[in-house]
């Protein structure tokens, strides 16, 4: 079983995020960066499949050199090797351009399954899995919260409000897992110590013979034109003067009705 997990390094979800003025890209230098929390579910799912079926887990990421740290965490969790695509010309890639780069790497790797998180916590588009499926002509399943692999096919379930929908599809395939499919493990100390000894290849755009017009800012089909901060919340209303609890409750209910909140 050869699984490739796509991961992204994102700014710490607890940190206060800032945009670089004029560029509308996240300022990654000023904050801690972590492995995208949604990707941890994909890494865990891949490691569990390896523990069950054997094989190898490759972690693939595109990003600045520091994204190595996110890959290393996945290696510490039990993945076997990492590939980082890092090149300044790739800066500004949107979801489609990113998918093009990742697809090119995947073409060069043998794999049975591509696993990814449902989205990154920074851009939150969730588009990469679908774009990859299109570029590689592979089936794509999203929001998967149960996953089994039997021989050359997989069975995946997706939870909806009405119930679970179970899909089967042949391998290879691209699967985006939902938060909650598993409980990602903490890397053990032995895992952390061993992660540094695992192979991690860094590739440039030239290594991948990428068509430069199709990647980076130039290859992006979308562009961020502006960003605005969420306006600070207006002060709420506190009900302090009332004759009885009933009257207090009525005043609260009136407020909710007046503001069409109920």
């Amino acid at each position: 079983m050869q699984t490739v997990v796509l991961v992204k390094q994102v700014v710490d979800t607890e940190a206060e995020k800032r945009l670089l003025p004029g560029e509308w890209r996240l300022d990654r230098a000023s904050v801690e960066n972590i492995l995208n929390p949604y990707d941890e579910y994909a890494v865990e799912a891949a490691v569990q499949l390896k523990e069950e079926l054997g094989g190898e887990v490759t972690v693939l990421s595109m990003g600045p050199q520091e994204a190595e740290e996110a890959i290393r965490k996945a290696l510490a969790m039990g993945a076997d090797r990492g590939v980082l695509v890092s090149d300044p010309v790739l800066q500004g890639s949107d979801a489609l351009a990113t998918a093009r780069v990742l697809a090119q790497v995947l073409r060069g790797l043998g794999f049975d399954l591509v696993l990814c998180g449902s989205m990154s916590t920074d851009a939150q588009t969730g588009l990469v899995p679908a774009a990859l499926g299109e570029l590689l002509d592979l089936p794509v399943l999203g929001a998967v919260n149960r996953l089994e692999v039997h021989g050359g096919s997989l069975k995946a379930a997706r939870q909806t409000d009405e119930g679970a929908i179970v899909y089967e599809c042949p391998l290879p395939a691209v699967v985006a897992v939902a938060k909650g499919i598993n409980e990602p493990r903490y890397p053990s100390l032995r895992g952390i110590m061993g992660a540094k000894k695992k192979p991690l290849d860094t590739k440039t755009a030239a290594d991948l013979a990428l068509e430069l017009g199709a990647v980076g800012l130039g290859g992006a089909r979308t562009r961020v034109h502006a960003a605005t901060s969420v306006p600070p919340r207006a002060a709420g209303k506190t009900v302090t003067e009332y004759e009885s609890p009933q009257e207090g409750a009525r005043l609260l209910a009136d407020f909710l009705h007046e503001n069409k909140l109920v």
């Binding site: 290393r72 965490k73 510490a76 903490y186 890397p187 100390l189 952390i192 110590m193 992660a195 540094k196």
Partner: peptide, 14 residues
């Protein structure tokens, strides 16, 4: 070192 920091981060998260 990178290793000390990774161990510290994992323990802190845990």
């Amino acid at each position: 070192t990178e290793e000390q920091r990774d161990i510290q981060t994992m323990t802190r998260d845990f």
